[in-house]
């Protein structure tokens, strides 16, 4: 039994969540109240809509993350075969690393790593 048994986990979790929600729906009391379905905002009716244009401060971080995450994926194959490729691979990955670290240092220097 290997990879294919993951389907069991998928189905099991679906059954767990779905079953519990259906069961709960069946046994839980229901009552309608206009205030109940209001979104919670500390007891005060919401002003405006919730899905407004929202100013997130981590736009630059997100781009950096994308770059670094892809690079991490590149590092994994090297890490697995590191002992085989030896020093040559080490030097190559060192160059790769230097570029990465340089990129991070540059972003740091340019104050890209500051939340606005």
């Amino acid at each position: 039994m290997n990879g294919e048994s993951l389907i069991v986990f998928f189905i099991t979790s679906l059954v767990l969540v779905g079953g519990a929600i259906v069961f709960s729906n069946y046994i839980a009391p229901k009552s309608f109240n206009k205030q109940k379905i209001e979104p919670y905002e500390c007891g005060i009716p919401t002003t405006g809509i919730s899905w407004l244009q929202f100013n997130v401060g981590y736009y630059l971080f997100a781009i950096l993350f994308l770059i670094f995450d892809v690079e991490t994926v590149f590092l994994f194959p090297w890490a697995v075969v590191m002992k085989q490729v030896g020093l040559v691979g080490m030097i190559e990955i060192l160059i790769f690393f230097v570029i990465l670290v340089f990129g991070l240092a540059y972003a740091w220097k340019k104050h890209a790593l500051v939340w606005e």
Partner: peptide, 29 residues
Amino acid sequence: MSENQIVTPPKDIDLDYQDYVINMGPQHP
């Protein structure tokens, strides 16, 4: 989103488009 979602803001807030107005309290930990 449906059309009646836009609620008129209270008078005392100057609602820029970007402004995100949120009530903290009275029922807030």
